[in-house]
Simulated scan of single mutants.
Amino acid sequence: MTSAPLDSALPLTFLGPEGTFTESALLQVPGAEAMERVPSTTAAAALAKVRRGEAFAAMLPIENSIEGGVPATLDAISNGIELRILHEVVVPVSFVLVAPAGVSLADITAVGTHPHAWAQTRDWFGENLPNATHAPANSTAAAAHALVAGTDAFQAAVCAPLVAQQTGLNILAAGIEDNIGAVTRFVLVGRPGSLPEPTGADKTTLAIPLPDDHPGALMAILEQFASRGVNLSRIESRPTGQFLGHYIFSVDVDGHIKDARVADALRGLHRVSPEIRFLGSYPRADKQQPQIRSYNSDGAFDDAAAWVQSLL
């Protein structure tokens, strides 16, 4: 079972401009191709459109297999009016080095691209253009489009092959990623509504503030998952920006909020951290089902609840 196809009069938005890996991820969501799609310059801007009701949902990168979580997305989702992750997509990542006509490798002193793309091509540049500096851009496609517009901040850009085709820039080198097989995980984020039904291969995302800093504070959070057999597939700390040492833990767990073990873990987490934020339960892109011990099954939780009730 998969999520229902998207259907809304409102447009979708994504981290633009056109041709980004993010747009490619969006087009993999059933129904997205038939809807209006509007690019946004930043993750915060994209989610602001969703929160204001100007867009139905926003597709954003949240995790990379090489660099880990994407801070801009994690922070934008975890703060502000509550939102929900509706869908996830995993996209293989391959990069090309592009430049306008007449520019050769010997002419390049600065390269524009997104910081994650630069991090994934460091080895190639170390071997081929060791003196080239990085000029950060909001996205790989934005850097390529800046070249087309005539920027003098850099002479070349790292982007997706699709962007090279769309812009007509020359490809100076292809397959420059340091880790063949790297992937980026994208999430489609919308406003709270009905949850996708459990599929048996689901993921739940949470933002859990650390209520106060004391010995065992993190353990009190983690044991809520461990004692119920809920596996964490990702955990990262992000500063709240309020004061030094104040953090939110961004967590992905295997399972759906309608699974008894996950629901019970959330009850325990709410006792420990009342400001916990539920960011959605949705089908996993890889469709991998978690291994669940018999005593953590829905039936085991039901039997335990019935046994306690019989004692009252």
Rank of each mutant, 00 (worst) to 15 (best):
L129T: 06
R122S: 02
F278N: 05
S94V: 15
S40R: 04
R267G: 08
G168N: 06
A142W: 09
P274K: 15
P198C: 04
I62K: 00
A44N: 02
V183A: 03
A164G: 14
D123H: 06
L169H: 03
I276T: 02
S104F: 09
T41P: 06
T140V: 14
H256K: 11
H116D: 14
S8T: 08
L266R: 00
D152W: 05
P100T: 13
A45L: 13
I85W: 02
F154T: 05
Y282V: 07
D178G: 09
P290I: 15
A263F: 12
P71R: 13
A260Q: 10
A265V: 05
Q309S: 04
D259A: 06
F56L: 09
S250F: 13
P115E: 03
L188S: 08
A201N: 04
Q155G: 03
T140G: 10
I257R: 08
A46N: 03
L210P: 00
E23A: 03
R271T: 15
G299R: 14
G299H: 11
G280T: 10
S237H: 09
P274S: 14
A46H: 03
V148P: 03
P283F: 05
I248N: 01
A160F: 04
G200R: 05
G299C: 12
L27P: 04
A201T: 05
F278A: 06
N296M: 12
V96H: 06
P211G: 15
F95A: 06
T109R: 15
G200A: 06
G80Y: 06
F186W: 09
T2R: 14
G268L: 01
A58T: 12
L47R: 02
K258S: 07
G181N: 09
P17N: 08
V262Y: 02
A110T: 13
A263E: 15
E88Y: 04
I108S: 02
L195A: 12
T121G: 03
V272Q: 09
A137G: 09
A46K: 03
W118Y: 07
D254A: 13
I248K: 00
P198R: 00
F56S: 01
P192M: 07
H87Y: 12
D7G: 02
P5D: 13
I276W: 01
L206K: 04
R191T: 10
A153E: 14
A306I: 14
D286E: 07
A153L: 15
S65M: 11
A135I: 03
G53D: 04
Q289D: 14
I66S: 08
A153N: 12
G175L: 06
I208Y: 01
D213G: 12
E236Y: 06
F95K: 01
G102A: 10
N64P: 02
H270C: 07
L311P: 03
I292S: 07
A72F: 10
F14C: 04
A226N: 12
P71M: 14
M59P: 00
P136G: 11
T240H: 07
I180E: 15
L83V: 13
L169S: 01
L83N: 04
G53I: 08
A156P: 01
F21W: 04
E197A: 13
A144K: 00
G126I: 00
R271V: 12
N179W: 11
R185F: 02
D178A: 08
H145A: 09
V253Q: 05
I292F: 03
A201F: 02
S104M: 11
A153K: 15
Y247A: 05
Q120R: 12
L232V: 10
